Amino acid sequence: MLVDSHCHLDFPDFEAERDDVVARAGTAGVGLMVTISTRVAKFGGIKAIAERYDNVFCTLGTHPHNAGEETDVTADQLVALSKHPKVVGIGEAGLDYFYDKAPRDLQAKGFRIHIEAARRTGLPLVIHAREADDDIAAILKEETGKGAFPFILHCFSSGPALARTGVALGGYVSFSGILTFKKSEALREIARSVPHDRLLVETDAPYLAPVPFRGKRNEPAYVAHTAAVLAETVGISADEMAALTTENFFRLFTKVPPSLRKVPDIG
């Protein structure tokens, strides 16, 4: 079984065929999916999707792009809403200096609020990091000094130093379809350096479809292609990678019922 640890099933791209998208994931051997929150204000929609499907879970949080819109979100609010049985993570939150859609100070403030919520709940924080490696690393080091919290560097496309820092602080590193791109050898080299017990895979659907679907809309079924490339990159079989990343997922996302490990492979 494979797990898509990060997708956005609430996005309009899937509105017309969400049932089919979830079904195709199952046919491809993807037994579990986590649909990721980008706005706390839209949590109702995310929650409804997770409630609809037994094998879909969700997170709760404010994307750094939206940090300027949700300045009133508090750790107390995140902690309270995260008690819903389908909420298995906090975020995605972090820093994005590539698009800079929100003031950087507000991104950092929101990031720290989400860290506090992750620390208090024990739920993993899904971290968005783009062109902000030094500041992400500095905040992670400072906040970890206040008390450990679980986290994942999602859709990893940063440099090797942030990967090393994340792993040293207890974090996990998740790779998306970017890993499959021809010009991503530097990223594949980073993947080789990550301990096997810290690896995860994701789609970030509807974005970043892996080869051979690059340029098309991504969907959870395609995580199998990323996992196959990751397996080849680190020198293990595709089946071993599926088992490894699924085990890692359950170790990190502890709120997901362990009984779902027994979901059989399909296809």
Rank of each mutant, 00 (worst) to 15 (best):
L125I: 09
G61N: 11
F151V: 02
G159Q: 14
G145K: 00
D105F: 10
G166W: 06
G94H: 11
K109F: 13
A41L: 12
A50W: 08
S259V: 10
E202N: 02
A243I: 07
M33W: 10
P210W: 04
L78G: 07
D54T: 15
T144I: 13
P160F: 06
D72H: 10
A16F: 00
C155E: 07
M1R: 04
R164T: 14
G166S: 12
T226D: 04
R130T: 04
A75E: 10
T27C: 11
K42M: 15
H128C: 11
T233G: 03
P258K: 06
E92D: 13
R251T: 14
S158D: 15
F149L: 03
D4H: 05
E92Y: 07
R214K: 04
M33Y: 11
A228H: 07
S82R: 05
P206G: 00
L179G: 00
G170K: 05
L169Y: 05
L2F: 02
A238L: 11
E202T: 04
P160T: 12
A67L: 03
F175L: 01
E202H: 02
A221D: 14
D100P: 02
A132H: 12
D133Y: 10
A48N: 06
D197L: 01
A16G: 02
F111W: 06
L260Q: 13
R52W: 12
A224I: 09
R120G: 08
A108W: 09
H6D: 02
